[in-house]
Each structure stands twice: as structure tokens, then as C-alpha cells.
């Protein structure tokens, strides 16, 4: 059935408009008291901080909007002023309250988690593994942000010395997964706004919001006419289809071709192959990223 609340043209149906609509609505409802600002904990485990950096590049809305109008950010080791034990103290203080947990980075499991210590608490090392379990159990909602949190990602790539795994291997509960290396700011902010207003967005069978992860890159790729005619680039500089060089657009489901990155100006296939960073199994299963000896014809 088609839902009567669906937005139809002539309303703007573009990707930017969808996220803008969600976040603006969330703000209006918070302002007029229909919604209460929720607490957000952003936990950074074993990764490269790429997702929080990506989030700071958000435009629709931007980070400031999120921090001042949408949520009450209790903890983020990259953004908060507190440090050391005082910071961990804040993290612990949230345990008795309602909060949304966003996790970036994989969970290092070797030696009982000692390969990634994220702070000290009561004089003892506090590991990513402990943090994931402790907060994961208590949160009202959990969002795994980026490839590492979703299924290990680059942190779990061979030889995976720290024995990294995705969050869902450690925290057994329903969670929203936002794969991508990094996660696009809109994917996170749009999901967060949806969560605040309407609860968990509709997810596919791998727990990704259909809102963002339902179309194959290949199906919306501007180079697609070249693929259909069998015109394949031999080097990265050519404007034709990158299939023979190893493009993973045909097995990757996400809205990069229409959303684009860095303030909506460009995206990977604008310059090179898609490396499947938003697909499960990235990076090991998405290799080789580029090859020059593939048979044409």
C-alpha cells in the first residue's frame, strides 16, 4: 500500500531535500515541546576517527545544528572539552539515563580487549571491548556508524592482529547499521532525525536504512550508458565505464551517485573506481580495487 503520508511532487524529491525535511521537522518538534532532546553518546573504538571527521563535514544540517538543536551530546572523545578520567566519568554518568549510542570503529577482542584502551577508569585501563558491552546493553538505540563498527571494516582486514570484529558480534541486540568508509554525514544525521521523530527507520535484511541504502550505485551511475554499450575505460582518467578496472558499483547499494560528497560536489566514481566501501566485507572482499590486465571482450 502507498502510505498517505508519502511526499509526492511537486514537493522537492531530491536527496538533499529528504534529509533537510527530516532534520527541520525534528527541530520544529523539539522547539514546540513535542519531542524531548535525547542524549547522544558517540563512542570511538578501533578505527581512524574518519566518521566523526566526516560528520563535521555535514551541510544539511551541519554539526553545530545537530549539537545545539537535535541532541545533547554527552560524550565524544574527539569533540568534548573534558579529558582523562573526568571524561570517562561523564560517559559513566549516562548509564542510568536514556541515551542513543553511536559507535564508530571496530571492537578489538584480542587479550580481552587490551589492544584498544580508550581511557582509564578508577585507575584501571578501560577497553573498547568493555565500553561497547557496557553502553551497548544500556542504550535505547544503537547506531553502528561506518564500515569498522558494522562488520570490522579496515580494522578487521587481514591479518587482523587485534582480532577486530563488528559491534554486532559483541553487542547482541537490534541495531541500525550505516556502513561506509566513512559514513556520509547525511546518512547519520538523517537516521538520527528519523529516530528522534518516528523511531527506527525501515531497515533492509542487513539492518541498513532503506532510506539511504536501497539503490545499486551501478543503477544510478552517470557512466552507466558506457557500460550498457560495452565501452570500458583502460585508465582512470577516461570518462567511460570503469567496470574492467574493477569498479564495485554493481554490488554496492547506497545513494552516492545522487547524494555525492564533500558538500555534494563530487564522489568516488567522479574520479576513480567505486571500491565498495559501503558493502559488507569491505575491504578484503572488495579487492582488487584496481586491475589493468582484465580481459575486455
Amino acid at each position: 500500500m502507498i502510505d498517505p503520508h508519502h511526499v509526492l511532487p511537486p514537493e522537492d524529491m531530491s536527496n538533499e531535500a529528504i534529509v533537510r525535511r527530516l532534520t527541520e521537522q525534528a527541530n520544529v518538534r523539539i522547539q514546540n515541546g513535542q519531542l524531548k532532546k535525547k542524549k547522544l553518546v558517540w563512542l570511538e573504538l578501533t578505527g581512524c576517527s574518519g566518521n566523526i571527521i566526516s560528520l563535521m563535514n555535514g551541510f544539511n544540517p551541519n554539526l553545530e545544528y545537530m549539537l545545539t538543536l537535535m541532541v545533547d551530546l554527552v560524550y565524544s572523545n574527539s569533540l568534548m572539552a573534558a579529558e582523562g578520567e573526568e571524561a570517562i566519568e561523564r560517559l559513566m554518568s549516562v548509564l542510568d539515563e536514556e541515551f542513543i549510542l553511536a559507535v564508530e570503529g571496530a571492537v578489538a577482542t584480542k587479550n580481552n580487549g587490551l589492544y584498544n584502551v580508550i581511557g582509564r577508569w578508577r585507575g584501571k585501563p578501560f577497553t573498547a571491548l568493555q565500553a561497547a558491552k557496557m553502553l551497548g546493553e544500556k542504550a535505547s538505540h544503537v547506531i553502528a556508524v561506518g564500515a569498522c563498527a558494522v562488520d570490522g571494516g579496515p580494522s578487521a582486514a587481514k591479518p587482523n592482529l587485534a582480532e577486530c570484529v563488528g559491534l554486532s558480534d559483541i553487542v547482541k541486540r537490534p541495531m541500525i547499521k550505516l556502513p561506509g568508509c566513512p559514513c556520509h554525514p547525511d546518512w547519520f544525521l538523517g537516521t538520527l532525525a528519523h529516530l528522534l521523530m518516528n523511531g527506527v527507520p525501515e531497515l533492509d535484511n542487513m539492518d541498513r536504512p532503506l532510506l539511504f541504502y536501497s539503490t545499486l550505485i551501478h543503477d544510478r551511475c552517470p557512466r552507466r550508458p558506457f557500460f550498457d554499450k560495452g565501452i570500458f575505460a583502460k585508465t582512470l582518467g577516461e570518462p567511460t565505464c570503469l567496470f574492467k578496472l574493477g569498479c564495485r558499483g554493481p554490488v554496492t547499494r547506497v545513494d552516492c551517485p545522487t547524494r555525492k560528497w564533500d558538500g555534494y560536489v563530487n564522489w568516488p566514481i567522479g574520479a576513480s573506481t567505486c571500491i565498495g566501501c559501503s558493502q559488507f566485507g569491505f575491504p578484503d572482499k572488495m579487492g582488487p580495487f584496481i586491475s589493468y590486465d582484465i580481459t575486455r571482450e
Binding site: H218, F227, F243, K244, L245, G246, C247, R248, P250, V251, G281, D284, K285, M286, G287, P288, I290, S291, I294, T295
Partner: peptide, 10 residues
């Protein structure tokens, strides 16, 4: 299409 670079999910 799912076998670019003559490989598929590793």
C-alpha cells in the same frame, strides 16, 4: 556486472 575485475566478494 557483479564480477568486475574477474572477482566477486573476494
Amino acid at each position: 556486472k557483479a564480477w568486475s575485475a574477474a572477482s566477486h566478494f573476494g
